[in-house]
Design a protein around this nucleic acid. Structure first.
Lengths: 207, 207, 207, 207
DNA sequence: GATGAATGAGGTTTCATTCAT
DNA sequence: AATGAATGAAACCTCATTCAT
């Protein structure tokens, strides 16, 4: 993603910034925002603390940059997956796969993301919450659109509002992933996306 | 709930304790654990700080007491609802209703509960997390049991592992409630439990 | 020492006071003045804290009462010993014996006494120091008087000012006792008073 | 004593450290360990409190550094004096002179030293006491060695165990110095070392 | 531009003392 | 008279942030 066209000086700065963010993510996700000091981040990233403050105005700013940047990456991967030309059922499968993939590639980030997107915010002076929620809602709408089209196409029965279906699917994936993160042996993650999708695709009650 | 038989002095102490916990809950849920000082809690509850420390050994102790006490209440209400003698479908309806009810009665507490039970832990010296997770898993198993019996009774088709179904149902309820909490007008909460349950009860794909 | 003539109520109060002082002595000598709380003293002595404050205006007052009372006892015993009718050499032997005896009977008190009488005061807001030093100087003068009479009687050679001799004898006894207190096996205390006295009685250099 | 070869930055740090220690010594010796706050030390030394904590991990650490550093200086001076090549009598004179000298140069420190080495400990979590006592015992053994050699040389009569003689001499010097410190006019310090030594050198009783 | 020493506000916690019961 | 719950000043210590080098 780092643009090769940038002058060397700029590229170097970007690399440093990434290093700082990576270290911060590592520490924040291990110990929690309030239990990590700027000193600690600077030391672990092998920069002077003053340099850290050249890149980020303050601790909160660093945290916001970190979360937003990763959210972008997160959402981008997922959006890319569902924008492939395929039928609605395959799109949903891709969605489940992409979310799972991203989740597993970013384990350290997940707790932070969940915290922010699910309401248990660290209560930074607002501003971050809103930004993240907006993105979350947008992604829900993308999924809702898939359901809507599937219903219009009569590939899906209209068992519920498409937005509701999107909320349900998204939250069920998150729930499985969180359980698996907590205790992988107790909660093996269903590798086949249909294991999750069937919960929605098949009717519980015989009809 | 406060026992009328207790000596007056004891009743008074209990009342004070409840007041402290209520104030702490209020502040913690508004601003987050680390952004609330003991001083602040004491002042808002109109006690001297020393008095606060007579009731709770330290800040973490206060926090743990708060979360555990409310979790108990939380889980109790829900368990009570599903232990009524009724068929499985009605039990699930009761579960949705009870969870919704409890959630709405304890709005300030929900963020804390979500934080603890869903992974965005405040990284208190562990111990609390574990306790809460254990209870969360137990409640999942109660719901799983309802699905299992329903399947055995052939009232439900076995579209997924009962534990998976429990995870899915629980997380979908939480998701709707959180969205509603975030933005009530944008996300009106489905008052009829079947709105949620139908997502599971009906099959999406025509069969 | 408690006067049997006092009305019962008064006697009872005196007994309580002694109990408080004894408990305080115990705790102070074990943990040091600043590491003992009034709460702790009250609890260990099985009185309410308010009662403690009925007997002593404040913590410092309690401490002063404790030290002064014990100093009195301390000095009284020693004075009594040297006031017996006996020759000067025997008086000095009695002095060594009495000091040793008192010291051993009051081990818990010794550190406090030494602290106060030797200069390493706890720096209570003065007042105590002075009182104790005055008594210490008085006792030195009593010993000096013995040396002076011995010299006048020509039982002692005038190898030094009598007051100096008193200082020397007193400090040497203290030194031996402290070493013995620190490490009894390494520093066995000389049981025979002459072991100490001979350091003064015999000339080191042949004459 | 500060090494001129050190880089400027290092020298500066050492100077600051000395300043902090000097201020702390001043306050501790005037008011006692527990009656001096870190805030107070920082203010008097004209540093921010955070800076104080950069140099010393906590209050106890500062105190230990202070006492141990001065004890070293203390013992070094005395050891140097008695290691000069001279006969035993002259060595003892040097000892008395050196101790007197060191004592007078370090008046503010003496109370602390006495407190720690003579038993009226502030009850810091042990460890310090032990360290100091060990050094005190070592110094006693050096003096005892002088007496032992003098006795072997037949320059001294064996009036007592050499270790006892060392204890006695050491304690007598301390006693005179403390009295002089308390009330200089009342207790003029004997400038000639023989005034003290004669107490040991001459026999009290005619022989 | 990078550095990291210095800052000091603010957090948690203790404990001497008071006073209503 | 005795009690001990309540008080709040003040202690220790951390850490986000600045700024001279």
């Amino acid at each position: 993603m780092t643009d090769q066209k940038l002058p060397r000086r700029e590229r170097e700065k970007l690399r440093q910034r990434q290093e700082m963010l990576a270290t911060a993510l590592d520490l924040f996700s291990q110990k929690g925002y309030h239990n990590v000091s700027m000193q600690e981040i600077a030391e672990k990233a092998e920069f002077a603390i003053g340099t850290l403050y050249k890149f980020f105005q303050n601790k909160e700013d660093l945290y916001k940059a970190l979360v937003l940047e990763l959210c972008d990456e997160f959402e981008d991967s997922i959006m890319q997956a569902i924008e492939q030309p395929q039928d609605e059922i395959e799109k949903l499968r891709s969605y489940v796969r992409a979310k799972t993939e991203v989740f597993r590639r970013n384990l350290p980030f997940i707790r932070l993301y969940m915290a922010e997107s699910r309401g248990a915010s660290f209560n930074l002076k607002a501003g971050l919450d809103d930004e993240i929620r907006k993105r979350y809602y947008l992604s829900l709408e993308s999924i809702a659109a898939i359901f809507a089209i599937g219903i219009k196409n009569q590939r899906f029965k209209k068992i519920a509002d498409p937005y509701y279906l999107a909320v349900a699917l998204s939250s069920v994936i998150d729930a499985f992933l969180l359980l698996w993160l907590d205790a992988p042996e107790r909660h093996p993650y269903p590798e086949d996306p249909d294991t999750i999708l069937n919960i929605f695709f098949k009717g519980l009650i015989d009809s």
